[in-house]
């Protein structure tokens, strides 16, 4: 099942990760790895534990047991700051934006640029934000409006800009296109390809199998908190994935499809 085509060292290895909430086992002994320039799709129905697993990697949730290894060293990700220190950035499904602040304030939230005297450097933050957002969406103009008044697409662009502005090495995208229209979805797809070429490793959580097959190199399917299979994307088709998501097993007659063609 595990492919050995990758020669480089993995960016991230999650080994035997477990998470328990009281008596509920949300994640049970999941292992997954991510190589530079690779997109790994994380699939599963709601409550399968995929968001939970990713939140542990982004430092937003503590893990009950298991190891996270980044660039060959075992790390403890207790807070989102810890994860960011290792170049792990996350685009959350909820976007995690402060509605009353403007785009620049959100982009630099928690990592504000300061002047020599320790004051907020609004001018620099605004110009940097303008550049960063223009790269993603040239029409982004209303930088000084509170983000509550922006459209879903614009809000998503801010969340994405925030993740990539700080030179992420590992990017976790939790349903990045859920709030987007077709053109913006295409933009996110282009961006994903571009980031991949830059050698960034991406975990993509998505319900959209179309996206997954377009963008991912490998997929990992979770069912009831367990990893029920990690495959190269060529080896599976949509029916196999659906079977894994719903039943937790492959169709009975399955064999790696990539080898047949």
């Amino acid at each position: 099942m595990l492919d050995t085509t990758h020669t480089g060292a993995p960016l991230v290895q999650m080994r035997d990760i477990r998470k328990q909430f009281g008596g509920v086992h949300a994640v049970q002994g999941v292992s997954v790895d991510l190589f530079p320039g690779e997109v790994v799709g994380v699939l599963g129905h709601n409550g399968a534990g995929k968001s939970c697993l990713m939140r542990m990697l982004s430092g937003a949730m503590s893990l009950t047991s298991g190891d996270i290894v980044v660039n060959g060293t075992k790390v403890e990700l207790k807070t989102p700051q810890d994860a960011r220190k290792y170049g792990i950035e996350t685009i959350y499904q909820t976007l995690a934006l402060a509605d009353h602040l403007d785009a620049a304030a959100n982009l630099f939230l928690g990592r504000e640029l300061k002047t020599r005297f320790g004051n907020l450097d609004e001018t620099r933050m605004h110009s940097e934000a303008r550049d960063a957002l223009a790269q993603l969406n040239p029409n982004f103009k209303n930088l000084k409006d509170p983000v509550a008044s922006l459209s879903g697409g614009q809000r998503q662009v801010i969340a994405i800009a925030r993740a990539i502005y700080f030179q992420a090495k590992v990017l976790i995208m939790d349903e990045p296109t859920a709030a987007l229209g077709p053109s913006e979805t295409a933009m996110v797809a282009d961006l994903t390809v571009k980031l991949k070429q830059e050698g960034i490793g991406i975990f993509l959580i998505s319900h959209d199998l179309h996206d997954v097959f377009d963008l991912c190199d490998r997929v990992m399917v979770m069912n009831k908190g367990c990893n029920v299979g990690t495959f190269k994307i060529e080896d599976v088709n949509k029916d196999d994935i659906l079977s894994l998501i719903i039943k937790g097993t492959l169709p009975d007659d399955w064999e790696p499809r990539g080898q047949n063609t």
Partner: peptide
């Protein structure tokens, strides 16, 4: 208005979870 602590005060009141995830 001009210091990081003020920015963080606004962010916590605006969306506490977002502020936490943003590293505040």
């Amino acid at each position: 208005q001009r210091r990081q602590i003020g920015r963080h005060i606004f962010s916590v009141g605006s969306n506490e979870e977002a502020a936490r995830l943003s590293g505040v």
